[in-house]
């Protein structure tokens, strides 16, 4: 369970990224965070695994007070939370499996870290993760030979191999075309349902958010302005979240050819 209580986040340049956030996300939820760029979606997500520090308030994730831990505790805490990025963040010059194996690096004994030799058990886990996202046959191919959608699945497999309780995704489909976006979103949905993993993603495409997520959180100027089930989101709600720019955002997406 993730619980934000009166959380504020102020950047060193005095920009108030988050103000008075109160939020409770139960295990197994599929949550989409929507809002204009710069509204604080990304900051909200990155506070959860302490990629960003919070300034005030308290944030409890599965019993851990995220604001209070430090050093090694942070690293151990992060192992339980997977994260997916817009730009995939893979090592493109090596094979797919080596990228997935990176998720085991923190638990390796010293000699394995030096030599880069992974145990059979880890290899099996990595391959299983690749199988779960349907690209087992690409295991020994170099990442730079894969398409964008396949690369995002490698990133997903890397996160699954970590066996996390929570999966965070920061604009996971922003650099993908509509068809591969759908495949990746289906992967998220399956993971959420089959493995009962909490999925929190921030997303630019409203339609996609409404189709896949159970719960929508609307962020505007660092504050939560909507929090409720996806089927209750109306035109007015969207209009408010997007400061009356909902039409524009939609149009922009039509131009990009998003139809999922």
């Amino acid at each position: 369970m993730i619980e934000f209580t009166n959380v504020d986040k102020v950047y060193p340049n005095k920009v108030k990224a988050l103000q008075n956030i109160n939020l409770k996300i139960e295990k197994g939820e599929f949550v989409a965070v929507i809002g204009l760029s710069g509204a604080g979606k990304s900051t909200l997500i990155r506070c959860i695994n302490r990629m960003h520090d919070i300034t005030h308030g308290s944030l409890i994730v599965d019993g851990t007070d995220v604001g209070k831990i430090k050093g090694k505790e942070i690293r151990n805490f992060r192992k339980r939370i997977g994260m997916i990025f817009q730009s995939f963040n893979l090592i493109t010059r090596t094979t797919v499996i080596k990228n997935v194996l990176v998720s085991f690096v923190p638990q390796l004994p010293f000699w394995r870290k030096m030599t880069g030799l992974f145990s059979k058990r880890h290899k099996l886990k990595a391959l299983t993760a690749l199988d779960q996202v349907g690209i087992l046959d690409k295991a020994y191919v170099r990442v730079d030979q894969l398409s964008g959608g396949q690369q995002q699945r490698v990133a997903l497999a890397r996160t699954l191999a970590q066996n996390p309780d929570i999966l965070l995704a920061d604009e996971p489909i922003a650099s993908l075309d509509p068809v591969t976006s759908k495949q990746v979103m289906d992967d998220f949905q399956r993971i959420n349902q089959d493995m009962d993993m909490t999925v929190i993603l921030n997303i630019h495409h409203v339609e996609v958010a409404l189709e896949y997520a159970d719960r929508i959180i609307g962020v505007r100027e660092g504050q939560i302005v909507y929090d409720g089930p996806a089927h209750d989101v109306t035109e007015e709600v969207l209009d408010y979240i997007y400061k009356g720019k909902a039409e524009e955002v939609k149009q922009e997406m039509d131009e990009e050819g998003v139809y999922v």
Binding site: R78, V105, R158
Partner: peptide
């Protein structure tokens, strides 16, 4: 950019 994801996995600087 790989650093960002390795941070989220919980890797040290050496790793």
């Amino acid at each position: 950019s790989i650093f960002e994801s390795m941070t989220s996995i919980g890797c040290t600087t050496f790793e």
